[in-house]
Design a protein around this nucleic acid. Structure first.
Length: 463
DNA sequence: TAAATGTTGTC
DNA sequence: ACAACATTT
């Protein structure tokens, strides 16, 4: 960080699209009088992400610009390679320092190293609540199991001093900026930090109380729906944690709050894993699982993607993803288990598909979740843990609320066949206007046989 | 953050 | 016959 005050600093915005509790912005404000809020449209990232995800980003940029203008400032947008853009705006504006929030991915590290080599560049924490490398075992090695990690995480948690949004920002009047790209606003995820803060507030006042139980019910409105906001830093995870923690400490019935906080810690855990073991991006965390003999049947993969596997809860999950860019966590686990175990398709195919379709496309969490499901990862479920899509369906979507929400072709089938439509006698199929094999597919595979095959295939590579 | 299968206990 | 519990995958 520059020791003495400078006149102008660039606040390079990446995954911190907010004014509240923003360490990078505050670091810039501590040394500089004039701030240039800059976002760079990096084609290397944009071309690999779904239009819907980019739309969420663009809408949030628009909201950030509005919030900045209310404070006498504005957002500047450039398009191109980050280093090129930074060098030009740095010289055009005669800025003397650049501040950004540190990001954790192989791409981000390469990018940021190149910038630091050429320009006065300072990174601040802020993506996670605690810096990923700050939590280690006594022997200095990183944790690889969640539970002891979470214990250490809680024990060494420092006091969090949240940072207020600035009330006024001074910004140079004349500097080139591209317009904020226009985009289709999302119904499910309206943009802006005020929406995110309000959503957090509502969640903590209502659903969080029963979160421990209700979060497993994909048909209920029981989760916070905050993941896209966390991913782009529209909402500060430190602030969210602190508010949940305050509620947990001031209420006797705090299980729901602790359970939600635990999900925040999972996010920290997988960011830490990615940081310490970047090879997880390439393949299995544990070497022997790169040798699984997958079937990789393209036809099965397509059916999975479209949501036509014949297992209603799996298909409902995939339709929710296709239609909204988001999927409930319970169904994420179920469709992932189905892809890896029932279809014996390489989990990386699923990882890529999720990464391309989720608005909350977080590299670390997505990779961690898939490795967990596939049983190839750090804290993975044992390989023999295979979800039964029918059991899961009956347990977590008993009334079929979620199935009905996403599979209109099953609208009229009798409740007793909702989880197993293929068991409908032909006359019932005709009565309810849902012919299996015509209006809704036959199951792609027989779960019980598929399970046997998965166990056999996994057993071959187990340590 | 599971499910299937086998064993024992109860009627 | 069928829970409840234990073991195996």
């Amino acid at each position: 960080m520059p020791k003495q005050a400078v006149s102008t600093a660039i606040w390079w915005i990446r995954r911190d699209l907010r004014l509240h509790d923003n360490p990078a912005l505050q670091a810039a404000l501590r040394v500089a009088r004039t701030i240039i809020p800059l976002f760079i449209l990096d084609e290397a990232i944009l071309t690999h992400s779904h239009e819907r995800c980019n739309a969420f980003l663009f809408e949030n940029l628009r909201e950030l610009d509005i919030a900045l203008r209310e404070r006498g400032s504005r957002l500047f947008i450039r398009r191109g390679a980050p280093l090129d853009c930074l060098q030009s705006i740095f010289h055009e504006s005669k800025a003397q320092a650049i501040f950004a929030q540190q990001d954790f991915s192989p791409y981000a590290h390469t990018r940021d190293k190149a910038v630091a080599a050429m320009l006065p560049f300072t990174l601040t924490p802020g993506v996670t609540i605690q810096p990923p490398l700050s939590i280690r075992k006594k022997d200095g090695n990183p944790y690889t199991i969640f539970t002891p990690y979470a214990r250490a995480w809680r024990e060494q948690l420092p006091a969090l001093h949240l940072l207020d949004a600035p009330t006024h920002l001074e910004t140079p009047p004349i500097l080139f900026s591209e317009p904020v790209p226009s985009a289709q606003p999302s119904q499910l995820f309206p943009a802006g930090e005020q929406v995110a803060l309000q959503r957090l507030h509502t969640f903590l006042a209502k659903q969080a109380w029963d979160y421990q139980h209700d979060r497993d019910m994909p048909g209920q409105d029981s989760t916070s729906l905050l993941s896209p906001y966390f991913h782009f830093g529209v909402l500060s995870s430190r602030l969210a944690f602190q508010q949940a923690q305050t509620q947990a400490q001031s209420n006797k019935e705090a299980a729901g709050f602790h359970s939600w906080i635990n999900e925040l810690v999972w996010r920290e855990f997988y960011t830490m894993i990615l940081e310490n073991f970047p090879h997880v991006v390439q393949g299995a965390f544990r070497e022997q699982f790169s040798r699984i003999e997958w079937e990789n049947n393209e036809h099965h993969f397509l059916a999975w993607q479209k949501g036509s596997t014949g297992y209603p809860l799996v298909d409902a999950g995939m339709r929710q993803l296709q239609e909204t860019g988001w999927m409930h966590n319970r169904t994420r686990m179920i469709v992932a288990s189905f892809l890896c175990k029932d279809l014996l398709i390489n989990w990386q195919w699923g990882e890529t598909f999720f990464y391309e379709n989720l608005i909350d496309r977080d590299l670390a969490s997505n990779n961690g979740g898939w490795q967990w499901s596939a049983g190839t990862g750090t804290d993975a479920a044992p390989y023999f843990r295979v979800f039964n899509p029918v059991t899961q369906s009956k347990r977590f979507d008993q009334q079929g609320t979620y199935i009905h929400q996403w599979l209109p072709e099953l609208d009229n089938i009798p409740d007793k066949y909702l989880h197993t439509p293929w068991q409908m006698p032909l006359d019932v199929q005709q009565d309810c206007g849902c012919i299996i094999g015509k209006h809704y597919p036959n199951p792609l595979i027989n779960h019980s046989l598929a399970r046997q095959l998965a166990l056999k295939t996994y057993r071959k590579v187990k340590a």
